[in-house]
Amino acid sequence: MVTLVLPRLAARAERRFQRAAAVAGRNVAAARHVGYWWVLVSGFFEPVLYLLSIGLGVGALIKGFTLPDGRTVSYAAFVAPAMLAASAMNGALAETTMNMFGKMKYMRLYDGVLATPVQPFEVALGELMWALVRGSIYSVAFLGIMVGMGLTSTGWAIAAFPATVIVGFAFGGMGMAIATYVRSWQDFDYIMVVQFAMFLFSGTFAPVDSYAWFMRIVVEVTPLYHGVQLLRGLATGALGWGLLGHVAYLIALASVGLVIAGRRMGVLLYK
């Protein structure tokens, strides 16, 4: 029985993966055009600039920085992993919310795609795969800069890389689900405010213990906090079982997002 079912399941999974890869392949083809490159490359600079400005510039005004566990690190070393997490979030959200909404509503790309054997869930998966590839390139570059500035070691940077993929995966899945609820470009104003608030308050620039208790609860429920904690733990070499909790949270978020996105796209496009 098992021998009969498994190969068939595997073949089905492989076809699904291939079709998702074809969706991602479309973005690779588009990325080869010159204008797109500019946007892609420039996206890398933003987190680096933040690191230099806040991490080094403001960091110069803060002498040592004591972590909750008592160790003292430079402010830049404290902020850098948070910028890495935020960059993974911003990259994944940009690709999945704005770009996906544009493709769905304005370019009407998926109308053409769904006339082929490709199914909505596979479109969602393919877009997410692309977001992860693109995000990973940014993450590797940023980790390289962190190592170069002496903000983490090569070993910990390598350990942190898969975690950045998980963070991207979580926000990509969530972003896609959100994109299916967006009505017009104006709605992105709201998304941006929430995104920016997370960026500022998720223990990014200062530890959350300085917040009032109710603020802490809100922050600890939101996803970026978990991404920041996970990456900061890895980049500063502070391992603990708590990190697995952050990983579990992020993977759960990604899965829920993907399932919702696949379903909603079916509803929106198969009218």
């Binding site: 076809r15 074809a22 969706v23 392949g25 797109y36 082929t116």
Partner: peptide, 27 residues
């Protein structure tokens, strides 16, 4: 093979890429 009423071509791709990318959706 579907030719919809409103063209849903990919504006970011070239003529040839529109065909090669689309072919990939069929495996």
């Amino acid at each position: 093979g579907v030719c919809p009423q409103q063209d849903s071509l990919d504006p970011e791709l070239t003529v040839r890429e529109n065909l090669t990318v689309y072919a990939r959706y069929f495996g």
